[in-house]
Simulated scan of single mutants.
Amino acid sequence: MPVDGASLSQSQSAGSKAGDAGEPAAVLHAPELSVVLPTFNERDNLPVLIERLDVALAGIAWEAIVVDDNSPDGTTETARQLANRDPRIRVIRRVGRRGLSGACIEGMLASSADYVAVMDADLQHDETLLPKMLEKLAGDGTAGNPGADLAVASRHVDGGAVGDGLSAMRASGSGLANRLARIFLHVDLSDPMSGFFMIRRTQVERLAPQLSSQGFKILLDIVASAKGSLRIVELPFVFRERLHGQSKLDTLVALDFLGLILSKLVGDLVSVRFLMFMMVGASGVVVHMVALFSLIEGFAMNFQVAQTAATFVAMTTNFYLNNRLTYRDRRLHGWAALRGLLTFYVVCGFGVIANVGVASLIYQEDAGRILIGVAGAAGAVMGAVWNYAASSVLTWRKA
């Protein structure tokens, strides 16, 4: 197709400006590799990581996709400043939604490269492993060596180590989670809890509809959803100590992990968030009973007063746990949390009405124990579903 002089001149001018700005030659070609960096409060770590990626991926056409969950420390602004100087950097700012898995999924689906890597932006993952992972996926192009579908950086194969990056408690918790994943989900990986991996983008596109946007263990979700269809290779790496900032993972992540396992065990028929809500509700029963007996035995309250007080104690703890874990991507703070607590009380009050109403419809005066049990269970399920649906809309509604 012929090119007119003006277009050619503009193209040459743009190329000249790119060269004057010192842009890397790799940006003149479509990236072969996209490195997805989910971030939250990583302002100080991000520039260091980009410099390290530039060194580690020399000679490779790469891009970095920073997916920031609207960090209050200015991570998005820092990422955009980096992108202004280096067009290999792309920025996605997420507002009104949070969560590591969701950020990783959005970043991977935003890529057009053949291969996509996911790694933390806190400098605990070894970026020098990326070329080796890419080599394992690319193969040599022959039928005998088509390359792997997924390369996982593992802390638990020969040559890998947890190092100083995890506390003793988090290290033991990670080991337990690994064992549970292998037992219940039949995930044949030495380190299914790793957050450092590389995958073919075509596989991401295939599996994306089955992945949960809640939670933190995106690799486990990918492998469990693939059900043995991926060619996987593991490479050793040493988990490094964080340079700046604090870890966003806490002990409540254990419940999040259990929710993911349960969701996969039931074939993704129930969302991870709903299962988390149910687990929190189950813990509320324990809290209720402890409060009830404590008020009766310790403060000599009559049953009706103690029952009412215990109900509010259980609802309050349920609200706190759901706000911390189930809806951590919509977490309420300050006055918003107080308003949320009040609406949660109202929602749960109507939940009790729904519970009793459904149970009463099924229950009969001359019912046997089985029908009584069915009536009670149906009422409990109705109340739980109402509480979940209504609180999602009224208490933790999306911004």
Results as ranks from 00 to 15, higher is better:
181 A>P: 03
181 A>R: 08
184 F>D: 06
184 F>Q: 05
187 V>K: 00
187 V>A: 00
191 D>E: 01
192 P>R: 10
193 M>P: 01
193 M>E: 13
193 M>C: 15
193 M>S: 09
195 G>W: 07
196 F>M: 10
196 F>T: 09
198 M>F: 11
198 M>L: 13
198 M>H: 07
199 I>F: 01
199 I>Q: 02
200 R>P: 03
200 R>L: 02
201 R>Y: 12
202 T>D: 15
202 T>N: 13
202 T>S: 15
203 Q>V: 12
203 Q>L: 11
204 V>D: 00
204 V>C: 04
205 E>I: 13
207 L>E: 04
207 L>M: 08
208 A>D: 08
209 P>N: 09
210 Q>M: 07
211 L>K: 00
212 S>N: 11
212 S>P: 05
213 S>V: 11
214 Q>A: 10
215 G>V: 10
215 G>K: 02
216 F>W: 12
216 F>A: 14
216 F>E: 10
216 F>C: 12
216 F>R: 15
217 K>H: 15
218 I>N: 11
218 I>G: 04
218 I>H: 07
218 I>D: 13
219 L>K: 07
219 L>F: 08
219 L>G: 02
223 V>I: 03
226 A>L: 03
226 A>Y: 09
226 A>M: 09
227 K>H: 15
228 G>F: 06
228 G>K: 03
228 G>Y: 08
229 S>Q: 09
231 R>G: 02
231 R>Q: 13
232 I>L: 03
232 I>N: 09
233 V>N: 10
233 V>M: 04
233 V>H: 02
234 E>P: 11
235 L>P: 07
236 P>C: 06
236 P>I: 08
236 P>Q: 01
236 P>Y: 07
237 F>L: 03
238 V>M: 08
238 V>P: 01
238 V>H: 07
240 R>T: 02
241 E>Y: 04
241 E>P: 03
243 L>A: 11
243 L>T: 14
243 L>E: 12
244 H>T: 09
244 H>S: 07
245 G>E: 05
245 G>M: 07
245 G>V: 08
246 Q>W: 06
247 S>T: 14
247 S>I: 07
247 S>F: 03
248 K>S: 14
248 K>E: 15
248 K>D: 14
248 K>C: 05
249 L>C: 11
250 D>I: 05
251 T>L: 14
252 L>S: 15
253 V>S: 14
254 A>N: 13
254 A>S: 14
254 A>D: 02
256 D>R: 11
256 D>H: 09
258 L>K: 07
259 G>T: 11
261 I>N: 03
264 K>P: 06
265 L>K: 13
266 V>I: 12
266 V>F: 08
267 G>K: 01
269 L>R: 15
271 S>T: 14
272 V>H: 01
272 V>N: 05
272 V>G: 00
272 V>A: 01
274 F>R: 04
